[in-house]
Write a protein that binds this DNA or RNA. Structure first.
Length: 653
RNA sequence: GUCCCCGUAGCUCAAUCGGAUAGAGCGUCGGCCUCCGGAGCCGAAGGUUGCAGGUUCGAAUCCUGCCGGGGAUACCA
């Protein structure tokens, strides 16, 4: 039972005597913020009182009089300006908790009307190695799939991979000119990655060489302008300082850009080998683009190479997904939609939604200067075209009712336009949602990079996490009073669970919309709000059962009464009963951090309980049994909750 | 230039479409191991929620302006 929902439904009848639509007021029934206000508080009396022109306290009192919650709660209290405070009855709590013992879903009730969801997440570009930037989409998207599915919805997780873009032109060009055939035979993925990096480096070198003089010129210009502005005496001081600030900021940006370009040049010029390659291929970027164009135009050779590369690229991705414990129902990349793009453009033009402008086919959306371009001047389609084709496919073939895009917040404008165009096109019945997330930053507050400025590869990130976790596991196990108890294989397995779990949890615990700082030390911290802490709480409970020789299945079958005699017990019980609320809130708002927060609080309340109540030595058999039942429920809540975040647990660690 | 997002404890972050005395973790300080796993527990200090106005019973949350940060902005995805 979702307690909040239950109490809301109790208020529905009394409220409907005051308003036609009680729903918005029912939403104001929520968990109490402070134990002094009970367990649940209803805050609707104040706004409602204003609407019906009555005193809020009196109104609250009247509503309470016609409210029937006596089976669940103590006598409701009206407090302050008109808050209604509800405190759950101890006997009800005891009975409700006992009823969870045999409930596999721990009180959560599946939705009555299931919807068809398509969740679009991860979506790496397959031609280049995955990096830290893909982590958030992958991890958040996976958790949302799990949550929605648990709620009872039909969910299709779709990995909309980039398998058709300019990166493939670079690979093809690299393969044709720089291939180490032996290396490709042995380790195709590594060789492809090398080719990608090489072509990318050479083409950015030429770009940099070309761009640098202009940037340096601008740098000089800005310096002059700043000098001039500093001397200017005919403008208001305020205006002048504003201008100066703006100029200085531009200066900084341009200077930074120059440094980058110089570094790109130096990297190539310091290596005779690279330099001679660069000299040999001065127009490498155009040539790579030409290879992409040929691929798109159906060139046989390039098509063959694309088909040759793709399986290895997908294998490389799969390795990472396997390690993360993430799977997709579909992997339909951009190439899949290629045959449909022509028709998309024709349809939109036919309906008068798209028009030609400056040689490109565009859709203009009110309030936006820049149009959505669905066919470029050169005739090529864009990712906007693909996104639109994808929507049509998902609606018509996958019967999608809701589509979630778990994508970087920087693409907000793109999605706003795409959704708007899709609605005009006739897909207004789809519930579109851009589940946006912020950037992963390094400890310096800038986008997370290696010391040399490269993006951090995802695989090495996972290796690092597991290695750090392993060190902690070793240290902990070696320090056990009765000597180490984990063998080599177990330690390896535990380190994997702790390391991967740590990375995922660090991501999921944050509000996804804000940027977050990637910090190894916090991620795998032995204490505090981390996956490790929750996993450890779970392992401790398992330890109790192991040590006590308790068969959990049997314990559940036999049942027993759960008595609430101390505050720590009550706190834990209330927490356990809130499991359904945490799941629903996280799923409805697409915010896994709600669930993460819940799990941390649950683990925390458990350890407080555990600290105060000596379970195994307890002499009173009924009390001991009740405590064991609480342990079992807690363990199950932690395990299931972590599972819905995509995080595993260990019996010992 | 236009548009979008953000600014909360020393640090990293919460705060469930406006609710009561703004919460956690880390760090700091102080307690707790003859006791089931101390990767732990309990407690303390720490805040004018960037600034100034406004809206109302009530504002971190909504509106306006300013300051500061980030991002997007016609043919890369």
């Amino acid at each position: 039972m979702n307690i909040l929902e239950e109490l809301r439904s109790r208020f529905r009848e009394p409220l409907s005597q005051w308003v036609d639509d009680p729903e918005p007021y029912l939403a104001m029934v929520r968990r109490a913020q402070d134990v002094r206000f009970g367990d649940v508080q209803a805050n609707f009396a104040m706004p409602l009182a204003k609407r019906v022109g009555q005193n809020a306290r009196e109104l609250a009192t009247e509503i309470v009089a016609s409210l029937d919650v006596s089976d669940l709660c103590e006598e409701p209290e009206v407090a302050g300006p008109g808050f209604i405070n509800l405190r759950l009855r101890t006997d009800w709590l005891e009975q409700a908790t006992a009823s969870l013992v045999t409930d596999e879903r721990l009180g959560h009730v599946a939705v009555s009307t299931a919807r068809n969801y398509v969740v679009d997440y991860s979506a790496p570009n397959v031609a280049k190695p995955m990096h830290v930037g893909h982590l958030r989409s992958t991890v958040i998207g996976d958790s949302l799939c799990r949550l929605l599915r648990f709620q009872g919805h039909r969910v299709i997780g779709d990995n909309h991979i980039g398998d058709w873009g300019t990166q493939f032109g670079m690979l093809i060009f690299g393969y044709k000119h720089f291939l180490d055939a032996e290396a490709f035979r042995r380790e195709p993925v590594q060789e492809l990655a090398r080719l990608y990096r090489l072509v990318h480096q050479l083409s950015s070198y030429h770009d940099a060489r070309r761009e640098l003089p202009a940037q340096q010129e601008q740098l000089a210009q800005l310096r002059k302008q700043i000098e001039a502005a500093e001397k200017a005496s005919d403008v208001e001081p305020k205006q002048r300082s504003r201008t100066l600030k703006k100029l200085r900021k531009s200066l900084e940006e341009v200077a930074e850009r120059c440094r980058q370009l110089e570094a790109a040049c130096a990297a190539v010029e310091s290596s005779p080998e690279l330099k001679s390659l660069a000299d040999a291929y001065p127009d490498i970027a155009e040539q790579a683009r030409a290879e992409t164009a040929k691929l798109h135009a159906g060139d046989e050779e390039n098509r063959r190479l694309w088909e040759l590369f793709l399986p290895s690229c997908l294998d490389a991705l799969q390795r990472i997904y396997d390690r993360l414990g993430i799977s997709f129902d579909l992997t339909l990349g951009e190439s899949f939609y290629q045959p449909m793009l022509e028709e998309v453009v024709e349809e939109l033009q036919g309906k008068g939604i798209a028009t030609e402008s400056e040689g490109a086919v565009c859709v203009f959306v009110e309030g936006n200067e820049a149009p959505l371009i669905i066919r470029k001047t050169d005739g090529a389609f864009t990712y906007a075209t693909t996104d639109l084709a994808t929507i049509k496919y998902r609606r018509e073939k996958l019967k999608a009712e809701s589509i979630l895009y778990v994508v970087d917040a920087r693409q907000s404008e793109h999605f706003r336009l795409v959704f708007e165009v899709a609605r005009r096109w006739g897909f207004g019945n789809i519930d579109f949602r851009h589940v946006r997330f912020g950037t992963v930053l390094g400890r310096d507050g800038k986008p997370f990079k290696t010391r040399s400025g490269d993006t951090v590869g995802l695989e090495s990130l996972l290796d690092e996490a597991v290695a750090r976790a392993r060190a902690i596991v070793d240290e902990n196990d070696d320090a056990k009073p009765d000597g180490p108890e984990l063998d080599e294989a177990t330690r390896t397995a535990v380190a994997e669970v702790v390391g991967i779990g740590g990375i995922k949890y660090a991501d999921l615990k944050h509000n996804r919309e804000s940027d977050y700082v990637f910090d190894w030390d916090k991620m795998l911290a032995k204490n505090g709000d981390s996956a490790t802490y929750i996993q450890y709480a779970y392992a401790r409970i398992c330890g109790i059962f192991r040590k006590g020789g308790v068969d959990r299945e049997q314990l559940r079958r036999e049942g027993g009464t759960i008595r609430i005699e101390r505050p720590v017990e009550r706190a834990l019980v209330v927490q356990l009963l809130q499991f359904p609320e945490a799941i629903d809130a996280a799923a409805v708002e697409c915010r896994p951090n709600f669930l993460a927060q819940y799990l941390f609080a649950t683990a925390n309340r458990f350890t407080a309980f555990y600290d105060e109540c000596q379970i195994l030595p307890e002499q009173d058999a009924d009390r001991r049994r009740g405590w064991l039942l609480l342990c079992d429920l807690t363990a199950r809540a932690l395990k299931l909750g972590l599972e819905l975040l995509g995080i595993s647990v260990c019996e010992r660690m």
